[in-house]
Design a protein around this nucleic acid. Structure first.
Lengths: 229, 229
DNA sequence: AGCGTCCGTCACCCATTTGTCACCCAAGGG
DNA sequence: CCCTTGGGTGACAAATGGGTGACGGACGCT
């Protein structure tokens, strides 16, 4: 199956994860510091790096950045492990390109599911992820670019994720709770009103196409299909 | 909604949780000891067990193990409540298969979010629900759209829920009390006459199809099957 | 250190939604 | 035919939900 590099300085936890991932059929390797993680990754390219945010030497974010900066390792999948209080870091993490987040304390069951899901997603070669095109909107996940009426429009990391999430669920209403959970991350303790603000900012950037991002009062938001009659 | 078994020997806390979960629409049951929890679970399979780690008789971990060992209850979702300091127990908790953790002290809001999240995840992945179609009426739950004779008709969130409820129970009369409980949610202390108003508003929006929403004098309302009879 | 960007939170405002009431009329029983 | 009861309906006030602009904190960059 797939090879996972587990990076966490809490040995008990790392070993617990190790034990369970092996049970689930993954091959694994452990690292307890950021430096060790980078060395291990260089030596034996893993498919996924499971990366604790709090490490004694480098922070998880720095490790992440180093991995992304290495041409050999650029495409490795990175799953961040964050403590609940580190919500703010999560956003940063997405910016440096983590592929998923799991919030501590988490269940092993969930962790394994997430790993499998992310591997499945990346199983299709990345080049072939077709850009999401929709009327005047085009979102290129691979290149991380977004176009409105052919014009490239810069979105922040969070806006991009929100837009991607909504476009991938064309026509389906997404509740604020769903969005918080799936775009912001599990157990996010944000105000749901925060979403409104980001939707507004997105709409601003959509310009003429702003009508495509609809509010469903009392329910949530959705992207409408401009071709639907 | 879902049934939650709350297990905690601190009665004040258990009751606080109880109050809030009921407010959020869950049905609940309390147990103050491990034995009582197991008995309650056997008697009335809950969807989720909210399990304090520190109990006077059995530890939460033992309760967890018993639940997992019982073929009837094996698949119940288990959310552990742990004090921050109980790191070691957390690890052991993973081993016996808790599905999520909430660390005390926690905010009630977060707890509710976590519960909803975990229930949603374990629910059958209802990416999209097939629309309810019925003669000239079509109600698309996923997109949250409603059509009369092919024409989209806007319903408020409440009207939508009411319509969904009635259409899903085609032909069956729903009493006002039933509707209040199931559409408005428990704990609603409304006048039953309020329903009349909403039924009227719905009928207005149904236009030609208004006859499909029948009054059963002295009993309640129902949607009739236009193809029957 | 200074600046700019991004993000979360607030407070204010408005439109819509929702609950309630009062006044009827219709149905059904005698 | 009359009376009772339940439901339809329009009007109204209150509550809610969402848009929006502003603010401050955190962070990266120079």
């Amino acid at each position: 199956m797939s090879h996972v590099l587990i990076v966490d300085d809490e040995r008990d936890l790392a070993e617990l994860i190790d034990f369970n991932l092996r049970g689930a059929g993954f091959s694994t390797r452990l690292a307890f510091t950021g430096e060790a993680a980078l060395a291990a990754a260089r030596e034996q390219s893993p498919d996924v790096v499971l990366l604790d945010l709090m490490l004694p030497d480098l922070s998880g974010i720095e490790v992440c950045r180093h991995l992304r900066a290495n041409s050999q390792l650029r495409d490795v999948l990175i799953v961040m492990l964050t403590a609940k209080s580190e919500e703010a870091d999560r956003i940063r993490g997405f910016e440096v390109g983590a592929d998923d987040y799991v919030v501590k304390p988490f269940s092993v069951r969930e962790l394994v599911l997430r790993l499998k899901a992310i591997l499945r997603r990346s199983a299709t070669p990345k080049e072939s992820v077709p850009p999401l095109a929709l009327g005047p909107l085009r979102l290129d996940v691979t290149a991380h670019r977004f176009y409105v009426e052919g014009q490239e429009t810069s979105l922040t990391a969070l806006e991009f994720r929100l837009m991607e999430h909504l476009m991938a669920r064309l026509g389906r209403v997404q509740s604020r709770e769903q969005l918080l959970e799936e775009v912001w991350g599990l157990s996010s303790s944000l105000e749901t009103r925060t979403i409104d603000t980001h939707v507004m900012r997105l709409r601003d950037k959509l310009g003429n196409a702003r009508a495509l991002l609809e509010t469903v009062r009392g329910v949530g938001y959705r992207i409408v299909d401009p071709t639907a009659g």
